[in-house]
Simulated assay, not measured.
Amino acid sequence: MANELTEAEKRTVASILRPRSDGWERALAYGAYVLPSVLFAAYGVWNQDFAAVLVAYVTLLVVVLLYLGWVRDASARLRSALEKYEAMTGASRQR
């Protein structure tokens, strides 16, 4: 059937519907990626080692770009799943 969700769409929907963690858990999860770069940048500023600051900045930039790419892909999968849901139920036309 054309309206069945793909495995990627199912994973995206499940991820969005999963209960959200509190701010502390989220900070720890993202901190594992961000904190080393921030500490490296602080070291670079403290010792006036601007190469270290540049490496930390580039590392943070790569992390942000990877996250934005993941969000873009997840948004596309969610949109596809919602379009299939709409095609099956006509939910927006039932007003």
Rank of each mutant, 00 (worst) to 15 (best):
L68H: 04
L78R: 09
A74N: 08
V13C: 08
L5I: 05
L54H: 13
V34Y: 00
R26G: 10
D49P: 07
S80W: 02
R72P: 02
S75K: 10
Y33H: 06
E7S: 10
K84M: 03
V13S: 08
W24A: 06
E25T: 07
V34G: 02
D49F: 02
E83S: 10
A32P: 05
L65T: 03
T6V: 08
A29Y: 11
V55D: 11
Y57R: 12
S75T: 13
E25M: 09
A2V: 11
L5M: 07
A14T: 04
K84R: 05
T12P: 09
A74E: 04
I16Y: 13
S15P: 00
D49M: 00
L60C: 01
R93C: 13
P36C: 04
Y30K: 12
L61P: 03
E4N: 15
W70H: 13
V58Q: 11
L35T: 10
A76P: 01
E25K: 13
T89D: 00
G90L: 01
P36A: 00
Y43E: 01
N47Q: 11
S80G: 14
F50T: 01
T59Y: 03
A52H: 00
S80E: 08
A56H: 01
A42D: 04
D22R: 07
L82M: 11
Q48V: 00
M88F: 08
E86Q: 15
A27S: 10
E83A: 13
R20V: 07
L66M: 11
Q48A: 10
R11L: 14
L65S: 06
L35C: 07
A42L: 12
V63I: 09
S75Q: 12
V71S: 13
E86M: 04
P19H: 09
Y30F: 13
M88I: 12
L68Y: 08
V63L: 10
I16T: 09
D73V: 12
R11A: 13
Y43K: 01
F40Y: 04
G90C: 01
A41E: 04
S92K: 14
E25C: 07
Q48I: 05
L65F: 09
D73N: 15
S75G: 15
A27F: 09
R11S: 14
Y43M: 02
E9G: 09
E83N: 06
R95S: 15
L54G: 12
R11G: 00
E83L: 14
D22P: 04
R95A: 15
S15L: 14
R26L: 13
R93K: 12
G23H: 05
T59K: 10
L82Y: 12
V55L: 08
F50Q: 02
V38A: 09
W46I: 01
R26T: 11
T6Q: 05
A32F: 06
A41C: 02
V58H: 02
R79P: 04
V58F: 02
L17A: 15
W46N: 06
Q48D: 06
A56W: 01
Q48G: 04
L68P: 07
S75H: 14
V64I: 10
Y43H: 01
S21G: 12
E86K: 04
W70T: 11
V62A: 11
Y57Q: 05
R72A: 15
S37W: 05
